[in-house]
């Protein structure tokens, strides 16, 4: 189950965390991973410019 929580683990700025059961991730790290997945998919589907003119 998804839970959003403000944790205080002794860090100066704990930030926002998302939790699915035992899986816990910080919002910033989730954004980085999601961005990488999106970029990876886009790199596979978007045609490279000038592809036909290459040998």
């Amino acid at each position: 189950m998804l839970g959003i929580q403000q944790t205080d683990a002794g860090m100066p700025d704990p930030g926002i965390y998302f939790q699915w059961g035992d899986f816990l991730i910080q919002f910033g790290n989730l954004v980085v991973i999601a961005t990488m997945v999106v970029l990876f998919i886009l790199a596979l589907v978007i045609p490279f410019p000038g592809r036909r003119s290459r040998k």
Binding site: F40, L42, A43, L44, F48, R54, K55
Partner: peptide, 13 residues
């Protein structure tokens, strides 16, 4: 030059 299969965004990273 490079082979044509290199003309893909996945080869850019």
């Amino acid at each position: 030059g490079q082979p044509s299969y290199v003309s893909s965004w996945i080869y850019v990273f």
